[in-house]
Amino acid sequence: MEQLSRNSMAMNRFQEPGFLLVRAQEGDDTSRNALIKKFTPFIMRVASNVSGRYVRLGSDDEASIGLIAFNEAINNYREEKGVSFLSFADTVIRRRLIDYFRKESKAQKVLPLSSFEDRNDESGEDVSNRLEIRQAQETFRIENEATDRRAEIVQYDKLLRDFGLSFAELVEVSPKHEDARRRAIDVARLIAETKEYRDYLKVKGSLPLKALEKEVDMSRKTLERQRKYIIAVTVIFLENLEYLKEYINKV
């Protein structure tokens, strides 16, 4: 019984983070993998905090970067520097994620390299580190949004061509007066929300003028004159084009 107890204590010691860290630094891959597995929740938590959203293992780049950074921390940690391993790993993960945000947002000129100086607030958190993370996140978000807008416009242009229209000619066909634009947008929204009308548009490629004339406060002649604009706006609603719909809703 005593022998079993000693064996159990020995096994537990082999699973302790400090022991695993030493063995991993000595080249034991089994200990390295065990250490990474043991602290995967910690890695995901740090990555999520830096990213400002929940990071999922196996589906988010930030998760992979966090794991690689933790592995790097194992290689480079030195106990004599007086910092705990997890604090050191936290800093390495944050630095690698910031580098990732910089690269993705192409913001090297906007965000200078940081030396991560030890300027702490009352909570003990590095203020310069926290500020740089926020800057990187914001620049990354803006760049992503600009990319998404460009992609949406390309998609929209392709959709318009099915109706013999193009994104470039929308300026020409747009009603000049605000009230007229607003009424045309209301007609487009009605078409998108009415199955009979949107089916007609998809099949015929034109407006159901006869039916619309009876339902909206707009003459047939005006409907015909604003046909291209109404179809173009209807496509935005039908395809739920987020950025273009945001612009239309402001009108």
Rank of each mutant, 00 (worst) to 15 (best):
45 R>M: 10
46 V>R: 01
46 V>C: 00
48 S>I: 04
50 V>A: 03
51 S>N: 02
51 S>P: 03
53 R>Y: 07
53 R>C: 10
53 R>W: 03
54 Y>K: 15
54 Y>N: 12
55 V>T: 10
55 V>S: 10
56 R>V: 11
56 R>F: 08
56 R>W: 03
56 R>Y: 09
57 L>K: 06
57 L>S: 11
59 S>I: 11
59 S>E: 13
60 D>A: 06
60 D>P: 08
62 E>A: 15
62 E>L: 15
63 A>P: 15
64 S>A: 14
64 S>I: 12
65 I>L: 06
65 I>S: 06
65 I>T: 13
66 G>D: 02
66 G>Y: 01
66 G>N: 02
66 G>R: 02
67 L>I: 13
67 L>S: 04
68 I>E: 07
68 I>W: 01
68 I>K: 04
69 A>N: 07
70 F>D: 03
70 F>V: 04
71 N>Q: 03
73 A>Q: 06
73 A>I: 05
73 A>E: 05
74 I>N: 07
75 N>T: 10
75 N>G: 12
75 N>C: 09
76 N>D: 15
76 N>S: 14
79 E>V: 13
80 E>C: 09
81 K>S: 03
83 V>F: 14
83 V>G: 07
84 S>N: 13
84 S>D: 15
84 S>C: 05
84 S>T: 15
85 F>W: 05
85 F>C: 13
86 L>Q: 12
86 L>A: 13
86 L>K: 14
87 S>L: 05
87 S>V: 04
87 S>N: 12
88 F>A: 07
88 F>Y: 14
88 F>W: 05
88 F>H: 11
89 A>P: 15
90 D>S: 13
90 D>F: 11
91 T>C: 04
91 T>N: 13
91 T>F: 02
92 V>G: 06
92 V>C: 04
92 V>A: 02
92 V>T: 08
93 I>M: 08
93 I>H: 09
93 I>Y: 12
94 R>S: 04
94 R>C: 00
95 R>Y: 00
96 R>K: 13
97 L>T: 05
97 L>C: 04
98 I>D: 03
99 D>N: 14
100 Y>A: 04
101 F>S: 09
101 F>K: 05
101 F>W: 04
101 F>P: 06
102 R>Y: 03
102 R>T: 14
102 R>K: 15
103 K>E: 08
103 K>M: 06
104 E>W: 00
105 S>F: 05
107 A>H: 07
108 Q>L: 14
109 K>A: 08
109 K>V: 10
